[in-house]
């Protein structure tokens, strides 16, 4: 439904933050980048605005004066799949994981650069527009052919175990989005493995060794410390 609104129009962004300075800065920057910016300063205002405006993306600060940010996400998710990007500070990893698990699409750690913010917004918009993932995902030298279950790096085919492939496919289908450890574990191994995060670590490690040029400085699979993993999006 967001898609038909964007036709011929600028995408609508709802910025939810109670800090006036941040609101002002974001409005200036996003206006210049050809977005229609709406603002809300409280959780309840955000919920109301989300229902009325039906924004294409929501930028949500988790520390709101009235409602818990995670609660705002839950209530929006009850009726809308609109992409939500969470803004949070470094020390609150738990909060980020909660927000992501509650349905947020992405997060940004304050303070952030504007380039990064725009990249995240665009990635979210792109995911919304593209309902069905591309059958062949390309990122740098990495090619993942989903219909044929083939993976190659720099033209050379890579042999993956079924679990590694499933893991890569999951990341590919959510490229650019952070997946929490919990989300990955639940999808791939089921709820029983939620308390066994080392299974995931080992597979990520093995996967990196197979697809990354230098596993110590990964370019494809990025670790978000304390939160989860993200597959880089093609620029």
């Amino acid at each position: 439904m967001a898609s038909d609104k964007t036709k011929g129009n600028l995408p609508h962004i709802l910025v939810v933050d109670d800090e006036a300075a941040i609101q002002r800065f974001l409005r200036t920057v996003l206006d210049a980048e050809e977005f229609t910016v709406h603002q809300a300063e409280t959780g309840h205002a955000a919920l109301a605005a989300a229902a009325v405006i039906k924004p294409d993306v929501i930028l949500l600060d988790l520390g709101l004066p009235d409602l818990d940010g995670v609660e705002v996400i839950r209530r929006i998710r009850e009726w809308s799949p609109v992409p939500i990007i969470v803004l949070s500070v470094r020390e609150r990893e738990d909060e980020k994981v909660q927000a992501l698990d509650a349905g947020a699409d992405d997060y940004l750690t304050k303070p952030f650069g504007i380039a990064e913010l725009l990249a995240r917004i665009r990635a979210s918009l792109r995911r919304t527009l593209q309902q069905v993932p591309e059958p062949v995902f390309t990122l740098g030298g990495l090619v993942v052919d989903l219909p044929r279950r083939l993976v190659s790096v720099d033209g050379a085919e890579v042999q993956l175990t079924p679990t590694e492939y499933d893991l890569l496919r999951l990341l590919v289908t959510h490229a650019g989005k952070v997946l929490t450890h919990g989300q990955i574990l639940r999808q791939l191994w089921g709820n029983a493995y939620l308390e066994q995060p080392h299974v995931l670590r080992v597979n990520i490690s093995n996967l990196r060794r197979k697809i990354e040029a230098d596993p110590s400085r990964p370019r494809f699979i990025i670790t978000e410390p304390g939160v989860g993993y993200r597959l880089q999006t093609p620029r």
Binding site: P197, H198, R201, V202, I204, S205, R208, P215, S216, R217, P218, I222, T223, P225, G226
Partner: peptide, 17 residues
């Protein structure tokens, strides 16, 4: 301190990033 079994290589990667 939330200790979870972690990959040292991953740790180094995060720090370098």
């Amino acid at each position: 301190v939330k200790r979870e079994p972690s990959d040292v290589q991953d740790l180094i990667g995060c720090a370098l990033a």
